[in-house]
Design a protein around this nucleic acid. Structure first.
Lengths: 200, 200, 200, 200
DNA sequence: TGTTAATCGAGACGGTACGTCCAGTCTTGAC
DNA sequence: GTCAAGACTGGACGTACCGTCTCGATTAACA
């Protein structure tokens, strides 16, 4: 079980452990960024964070869970996005921001690692879906639904499928690496999937 | 460097080593299938294959490369597919076969593992792209190009992008696991990406 | 420094701390008896005694010192023994009681542990000598000296050496375990060391 | 089970492992001598011996067993002693050599540690008795038996008890430390236990 | 047919990280 | 002010696996 568990132990002194926990999350991200995946060991995290291994294992089941928390913290903040009334433009902006967040940033390596580890760690995969994907998909789904309401998309559109058609190719290029998820591709993709009809 | 290297050592006695190599590949697949990723150790492969670790390391740089070879061998065979003259139907069949190959088969776990490891192992990722993806994409690209020629797709269509729009969502659902890549989804996806226009 | 130190801190509230200290000593003995040496951890003592670790460390430098105090408390009581006028009989009785105290009782394991730890902990060894051995040797030495005075032992007898000759073999068998310190052995030993001459 | 087991695994290459094993034993002794008991960790032994922990654990169950082997190796050599025909003199020489071997030498600390650990480790205690004590006691018993045959000791003497009466006080002083096992004490002890009668 | 060199299995080796446990210190809040 | 509760650092434990290595035995091709 990852720290996802809402019933995780509450330390007597929230302040003490929170300092250690924050240092741990930061150390995990920094290590991964600076020295790569193979340097991401619990010992190294502990040493860099100035925290003992026992403390890490007290709050997380393994280093993947640490990284998950660090990833969520680092990508926290406002995740909603404005509705300009132009669905295609909004979706294009949003997909562009997603790619930006994952290109040449510490988060790219972190995301890759989490998805990779998630292939063998169901709890981690679930945490990625529930804690990262789901909220963002909910917002994008809302935008699509408003697009349907506004007539930019046909009535009866299955928005979840549409989300997969939009985000799938992006993840595919990011994870498989056979081609870049560059501006031109995103332009084309959003147009193609949302339909050229609405294009101005 | 993976065994992809064309200059790999050639054993004096091809027969002896080939027996060992085949047993090694088989053992890797079987272990992964039966006991999962965490049981896939070089020691375990060696023991199960009745082969020494030294022999494994003589022919492959690491267990990922073994698994890559095993994966390629297991998914070898005729990869071309017939051209019925109906692009949508052909693409739908083909995507269906891809998903079948990866659903409830030993290959699913193997593919997941290879892509996961590839996130931290550029040589492995490259091998996956060049030795597995590329040939299959080339065939599918050919089909799309014939579709363009036949007028089923508009002239000037960028077939690589179209491939990503078709396969991306499938890998996305397989790797992220938020939803199933079922028949209905594939039906919708192929129709949506190749354009409803051509639909009868 | 062990709790041997006569200048140990005096708690403001003697009553509270004495209750905690008594529970701690008892818990140490019980743990050692019931679950063995490897279960004798400070955490376990604290939990069983319903006392916090901080309290234990407030009054003792380490668990060995706790055990020393517990041992002394458990073996307290009248340590003097009557003088029947027959030295050999008195010594034989006394050696017998020593062995009884250490055979099939919680004290055996405790004594073994204290002597074992004392091999690497000079303060503990000193405490064992000064607080347990010395008083008992003083009494036995008195008995021997009276034996000299009564003519049961030759004048000029070095009583300390005689004590070692009497008690040494007993501890030797108890600690090394190559043979039992049984009644027959004690009979022979006392006779042999005190001299058959005085035997009736 | 300690390495005492005569059926311990035989390495493919005796030479390789023997080098590692010898370095391990030496490192254990040196560490104990130079830095004391608390520095005697498996990690430290491994580092000092230039050997990996895995190798140590391959051949010994724990560090105590390493130390036992090191102790036996260090105290190996001729353990028999000449029979001059004068039992008292021979025993006095022998007890003197025992004390010498354990006074101000690396072996003293080693012996203390082994006996101490043996209080909680039956296998270790047994190994000490069988592999160190027993051979030496057998030789001394032989000497006593010859003394009986020569009439230096009374017929029917129980030599095992006599051994305990001789060695017990020596170990007692060494382990408890209340007094020194010096020349004068040994002189008196041997005379007193073997009987003044035979004294010339 | 006998010799020789490559290759094999077996498995020991140094190294590194794991996840656990305990010692001894420190912090907080209840009494 | 003292206590229990328990989090903290530090560090050793014993295990597992990696990738390298050494060893004889087996093999296959050539002498």
């Amino acid at each position: 079980m990852t720290s996802t568990d809402p019933e995780r132990r509450i330390p007597t002194s929230e302040r003490r452990s929170e300092r250690a926990a924050a240092a741990t999350r930061l150390a995990a991200l920094d290590l991964l960024r600076e020295r790569g995946y193979q340097a991401l060991t619990v010992d190294a995290i502990a040493e860099r964070a100035g925290v003992s291994k026992a403390t890490i294992y007290r709050w997380w089941p393994n280093k993947q869970a640490v990284l998950m928390d660090a990833f969520l913290e680092a990508s926290a903040g406002e995740i909603d996005w404005p509705d300009t009334g132009d669905l295609r433009r909004d979706m294009r902006d949003q997909v562009g921001r997603l790619v930006e967040a994952f290109t040449d940033t510490p988060l790219e390596q972190t995301m890759r690692t989490l998805i990779a580890e998630g292939q063998h760690d169901p709890a981690l995969a679930q945490a990625y879906r529930e804690r990262w994907l789901a909220p963002r998909r909910a917002i994008a789904r809302g935008a699509l639904e408003r697009g349907v309401a506004r007539g930019e998309l046909p009535p009866g559109t299955n928005c979840d499928r549409l989300l997969d058609a939009l985000y799938g190719p992006v993840y595919y290029r990011l994870l498989l690496g056979h081609d870049e998820a560059d501006e031109a591709f995103l332009d084309w993709l959003v147009d193609h999937v949302l339909g050229e009809a609405g294009k101005r």
